[in-house]
Amino acid sequence: MTEPAVVVLPLWLPGLILLLAAGGLVAVGLCRRWAGAAAEETAEEERDWSIPELVVETAPGNLFQRWDTRIKLATLLGYAFLVVSLHRPGPAAAAVLISAVAVLLARIPSTGVLKRAAGISGFLLMLALIMPLTVRRHPGDPIVVIAGLEFLTFNPRGLTLALTIGCKALAVALLMEPMLATSALGNTLEALARLGVPVKLTQMVLLSHRYLHVFAAESQRMQTAMRARGFKQRTDRRTLQTVANFLGMLFVRSFDRTQRVQDAMLARGFTGRFPVHHRFAAAPGDWLLAVAWLSVGVILLLFDRFGL
């Protein structure tokens, strides 16, 4: 067994990196705050900003819109599982590139893609910070310590692991927009039903999505009323009590509404299934694209396991 190589870094180097990281974090925080403030300003006119719509926003006629929704979903879901099975950073980075190409091909507006990247950033940042400090030391792993801070031992293998996970997560996250935003949600769910997901479930997702906006607006209105009465969030018992009352009221109103909505649906002849107006038709090209796409995934995986 070889002794692990120990690399000692001078104190100023990680200090500089930490400073840069802290600066980056502050910048991200400020951006978020500005974005939040800007969104709050526009919230006056708009219905609700916090819940995005999953509808067609791309230029019509691109590859992903023409692809049969059933085959598209099955292919990309299978591909996603192939991507998350990768173990090495190289193939994982290649998967990110492939997803980026898919985003370009689908001509997706960048806001949706960025939101998804932001959605996973917190979890991945935590992994990147913690894993180099905590992964188990294998014999032969080089160890990086900082002069003056010898009690912290950084294992570069942890960073590689965290980066690989980050690449895999980003690769799948980037694929979500080409997969979901290129068909209306109703079509996506109908396609899922054709693929074997119980109709009961797909209908619940559809109905739930419809009413998200209603309840988000309700929540917004109640929060505005609370602010108008001088409520400020603090770390104290009173805030918790008020938030609990707010949630309780939200549930009371929502549950009352569920009864009214159900009555209205029954009155209009709801039999447990919304009518479907979409016809699916798979052409040979759809299958060809599926085979090509999955081949890419399999090649990535083979390269990951047996490659250079």
Binding site: L207, R210, Y211
Partner: peptide, 22 residues
């Protein structure tokens, strides 16, 4: 089932509520 779907929407909104902690 439709009722549970609607209730789900309200839980979704509730889970977006943030509580300050320091």
């Amino acid at each position: 089932l439709p009722k549970v779907a609607l209730a789900t929407a309200s839980f979704f909104v509730a889970s977006l509520v943030h509580v300050p902690l320091g």
